[in-house]
Design a binder for these strands. Structure first.
Lengths: 224, 224
DNA sequence: TGCTCATTGTGTACGGAGTATACATGAGAC
DNA sequence: GTCTCATGTATACTCCGTACACAATGAGCA
């Protein structure tokens, strides 16, 4: 068989292998646990070997974003009905982002929305247009859904990190945390926050996220 | 006048002065431009002097988040009508986040939602409850609005960084960028993306963001 | 089979990051 | 005047990303 380029099958390393190990490190030790030296050690190789496959560390981080996004749409699904299809798509995207919370800070930075992001965007646009929505509604709908998902996941991740130290959930626990963190502030300054704390803390659940997505979808269609 | 604690009025430095200079650096040179040495130089002081006022660099970054959020609600406003009030509040929050795009990656990380964040949350909850919404609607409404804002700003910031290299805007420009970045991918793979590009690129405007917020608010109230 | 040479991994080293630790200084309180 | 403690300094250590020169390897052609 003739191959015009050897396409790097010769060495032990490859972009794929490096990215997989990098993602494993980020998952287990966080983004700041990912250093070139640590990564090289995991790959059983010299630090500089990595630079034969990536221009620099930023290049690796960009690859991680793409990897996680690709994972979110790894397996096709043919859910019936465009509304349900969209809901499932965003639920999956949320799931894979939550599975790799370390990469989330990367999404907000750098202008690296690559091929995978474009692919999923394209399919979403297709579904929305197919539903008979006008161009403006389609554009705004996509923007609402993507923004909401990104923000919701960011908030969920932050909330989960906060739960590390103290298991929250009960109202007393919430009050105690508030009081503890802002001893100087009067707890009476936040009556609504305290009253609604149980409901607010429920927004780290998949079901609630799904309801949010559905509400946005419903708001796109003119009074059904 | 008697003061029980001197509260650090003696030295040249203070938490406030340090945070102000830190924010100025982040604004002008980005988050990665903020180093302790650079900051100390700006303050005309030794690097280690900063550590008399902050436990570590993370402590400084947490302070920056609070500073920006505080700025977003610096001046009160008494817009008539709860819906308009909420819209103005989120428009302001977006504006101050966009004014300091460098701190945005910080919002996604760390569990540091401080006093300022709680204050604005409390007021929003009050407005929503005052509008006669049920507890569930209030909680979901807050979550939708905050998540949307966070995500929308993140996307705006990323889009603006992308515009640095090439002024986008026209449809031809968009196509050229797409083709350039994914030479191997067939442009025909993204028909919807190309068709809707002009509308999609409009989502870096304040007006469009406001429309998104209004649409969410409208979806909260049962068929008016 | 053996020469050639691009590709891939190594070794060493440099500048800059955050920050621990010990020390200097200077402004109130007595 | 002297004590004391908060504030800023000096020095140095570890770890980071990565530039640069070199060594090994294996595919392609003679």
């Amino acid at each position: 068989m003739y191959t015009p380029y050897t396409m790097s099958t010769r060495g032990r390393l490859s972009r794929e292998r490096i990215l997989e190990d990098a993602l494993r490190i980020v998952d287990s030790e966080g983004l700041q646990g990912l250093t070139i030296r640590r990564l090289a050690q995991e790959l059983d190789v010299t630090p500089m070997a990595v630079y034969r496959h990536f221009k620099n560390k930023t290049d690796i981080l960009d690859g991680l974003i793409e990897l996680v996004i690709a994972e979110g749409q790894a397996t096709e699904h043919d859910t019936e009905g465009w509304q349900a299809w969209i809901e499932v798509t965003f639920l999956r995207m949320r799931a894979s982002l939550l599975q790799h919370p370390g990469v989330l800070p990367l999404l907000g930075s750098s202008a690296s929305y690559g091929l995978q992001s474009l692919r999923i965007t394209e399919r979403l646009l297709g579904k929305l247009r197919g539903a008979g929505l006008g161009a403006d509604a389609v554009a705004r709908g996509l923007h609402l859904l993507v923004s909401y998902t990104l923000g919701a996941v960011a908030i969920e991740v932050a909330a989960r990190e906060q739960q590390q130290s103290a298991e929250a959930g009960t109202q007393q626990e919430w009050q105690r945390q508030l009081r503890q963190r802002f001893e100087s502030a009067d707890i009476a300054e936040f009556p609504n926050l305290v009253a609604l704390a149980p409901k607010l803390s429920r927004f780290v659940e998949e079901a609630e996220f799904g309801l949010g997505v559905r509400q946005i979808i419903r708001s796109l269609t003119p009074e059904a």
